[in-house]
Amino acid sequence: MEKRVYYQEINITEELSARINELVSHYPADKKKSALIPVLHVVQDAHENWLSIPLMDKVAEILGITPIEVYEVVTFYTMFNQKPVGKYMFEFCRTSCCAILGGDDMMEYACQKLGVKEGETTPDGLFSVAGVECLGACGYGPMLQLGDFYHEKLTKEKIDALIEDCKQGKINLY
């Protein structure tokens, strides 16, 4: 397998720092570690949706915990990405209720249209496609998640339109 080293620019802006402090304030002063998952979410969102080792180390420093405590968590939870992903990550639900309504067909269609396999990113870094487990939209399948939002009752036409909107920068992720 090809080995690649990815570089990530770390930028804890004032705004991000304020948000982190707000999250930390939700827990007792001696229980800062509890803020870890919410903090990782906002840090990841502010860093192109992935977490490099130096960035995880930075989070450990901010929360006053050891780096291993951060790695343990990042590797356990599927929403944390350990390498770069496309700006627009199409996460298709592949679980039963969506699958019986054609979920697999929808994901295959998107893959084919974007020229990638599941789990891959387009060379321009714009799109990724991933299969994920039930997202709690089972009555409105097939569905996908893009950023914070759900797109439900998918059809090929809806996928076409969504890809087009992404290309034109019309989609808000957060």
Binding site: S34, V73, F76, T78, V132
Partner: peptide, 20 residues
Amino acid sequence: AGAYICGEETALIESLEGKR
């Protein structure tokens, strides 16, 4: 952050403590 098991109440508590 995406783990079904965190619905189990003691796993949920661990997760709320910032752990796996």
